[in-house]
């Protein structure tokens, strides 16, 4: 089947977004920005799923995306609660300041 926009294009785009997100996690120090980068990585994976779902004309990819979104929402809630709890103690969201345990 021929789509006007080939599936490979979507995969390349999702790859770019995934790598950008991974770089964000590794390079940024602010916990909230790191977390937003993780969300972007999940989003890129979702895009790959939907593109493949159309390639295979099979709903399974879209259902997976539905579940990933739900899980991401739960994760965000817990993660932000953790960040709020830490911030109450330290007044900073810089994860580089979290180095009490060394070794």
């Amino acid at each position: 089947m021929n789509f006007s926009v080939p599936t490979e294009a979507f995969i390349v785009l999702s790859m770019v977004l995934f790598v950008l997100g991974a770089m964000g996690v590794m390079l940024r120090k602010n916990a909230i920005i790191v977390f937003m980068s993780v969300e972007m990585m999940l989003n890129a994976a979702n895009l790959a799923f939907v593109a493949f779902a159309r390639q295979w004309m099979h709903l399974e990819g879209q259902v997976f995306v539905f579940f990933v979104m739900t899980v991401a929402a739960a994760e965000v809630a817990v993660g932000l609660a953790l960040i709020v709890a830490i911030f109450r103690n330290r007044n900073s969201t810089n994860i580089d300041a979290l180095h009490q345990m060394e070794g």
């Binding site: 991974a22 790191v34 990585m41 999940l42 890129a44 799923f49 997976f64 953790l82 979290l98």
Partner: peptide, 27 residues
């Protein structure tokens, strides 16, 4: 708390890798 947030960030990071891997297998 520090261990919680470290575990959390790296755990979320790794599950994003898992989802992408699953996407490639699905594709």
């Amino acid at each position: 708390q520090e261990s919680g947030i470290k575990y959390f960030i790296l755990g979320a990071f790794s599950s994003a890798f898992f989802v992408y891997g699953a996407a490639l297998v699905y594709g």
